[in-house]
Structure formats: C-alpha cells, structure tokens
C-alpha cells in the first residue's frame, strides 16, 4: 500500500505539472458525488459518458441525472460535439510521466475524451504503474488493442510564437479521479 501512496504522489505531481487536476475517492459512490460536484462547479449541463466498471457500479448516470444534469451514454456521435463534459474510464496511470493509458478501441470512449472541453477520466488506484516500461509490458501482454490512448494533461499547442496555450482541438480541462475500491477488477 505504501508503494501505491508513493506512486499516487508521484503521479499527481507529474500530472499537475502539465495542468491536469487530480482527485481521489475511496469508493465508486464517493467518486460519483465528487464528479457531480465538480461538474456543478464548472457549470456543465450536458454530459456524455462512455460507461465502464466504475461508472456502472456507481450508477453515475443516475447520480448525475438526479443532480439535474442532462446525461447521454449512447449514440454519442450526435451528442458528444454538443456536450460540456465527457466521462470515460482508463486502465492505467503512469507515475513516471503523469500519463493515463486506456484501451480506446470503443469509438464512444474516444468521442467523450476528445470532443467536449472537459474530460473527466476515472481510474482505479490499482491501475497505477511506476514507469512507461511497465505499462508497455502490460499492454503487450494483454494483446495489443485496436487503439490505445495515452493522455497526459489537456490538449495544448505552442504553434503561435511558441506560447503555450491550453485547449486546442481536444479538452482544455483534464480531471482525473482515482477510485480506491472499484469493487471489481481491482488487481
């Protein structure tokens, strides 16, 4: 466990250094409330979710709907371009670089994580890896999926006068929520 704490601290430091926001919740239910409050704070109204373990288990769609948000989780090609925020889950978080790694073979996953201005990524704390090397081994062992995405901070450019500007084609906010007890698949 102490190892996890060390990795979490390192991840957080690296991710924050590239303008990501990092939160942590004990359970899926807590994560649901946390996400709801974050979205309310941002003034988001329309949300798209690509469901996976954590959001399903925490009944995230219901929680957010109950809070008065408009939530979509299917046929996202129509909804994602109009949404204020997208929620997806990733499999790994790499402490070395503050990167998230997810199997993004599912097109809905990619839509919610690229089109809206805010991307909330849920990840099991057990998915923390120390290094990119470890993460690549894990990816290879699982049989390389059709599309893997590494996400490190929000979308950025320095193409005009080399001035760093956040939020070009992808999200301008990346919010990462670690969940300690996912309930399943928590290796």
């Amino acid at each position: 466990m102490r190892d996890t704490e060390r990795l979490y601290a390192e991840f957080r430091q690296k991710a924050e250094a590239v303008s990501a926001q990092v939160y942590r919740a004990g359970t899926g239910d807590e994560a649901g409330i946390l996400v709801g409050n974050l979205l309310a704070g941002l003034g988001s109204k329309k949300i798209v979710i690509s469901h996976a373990g954590i959001s399903r288990q925490a009944k995230l769609e219901q929680v957010l709907t109950d809070m008065g948000l408009e939530v979509h989780s299917a046929k996202l090609r129509l909804q994602a371009p109009l949404a204020d925020a997208g929620i997806s889950q990733v499999e790994m978080a790499v402490a070395e670089t503050g990167s998230l790694i997810g199997d993004a073979s599912n097109v809905e996953d990619r839509l919610v994580s690229t089109l809206p201005l805010v991307h909330i990524a849920l990840v099991s704390t057990g998915g923390l890896k120390a290094t990119l090397a470890e993460a690549l081994v894990a990816l290879r062992e699982g049989g390389v999926p059709g599309q893997i995405n590494f996400i490190t901070g929000p979308s950025r450019t320095s193409d005009i006068e080399r001035v760093l500007t956040i939020g070009v084609h992808g999200p301008e906010k990346l919010i990462i929520v670690f969940v300690d007890q996912e309930g399943q698949g928590n290796g």
């Binding site: 690296k14 590239v18 990167s99 990816l139 599309q147 995405n149 490190t152 929000p154 950025r156």
Partner: peptide, 13 residues
C-alpha cells in the same frame, strides 16, 4: 516529458 497524446493504432476500430 511526453506529448499530451500518444495514440497506438493497430488495424481498424
């Protein structure tokens, strides 16, 4: 340290 995005694409999705 790393770019914002790294995509690894293997065949069509």
């Amino acid at each position: 340290q790393i770019t914002s995005y790294v995509s690894m694409i293997t065949g069509p999705t």
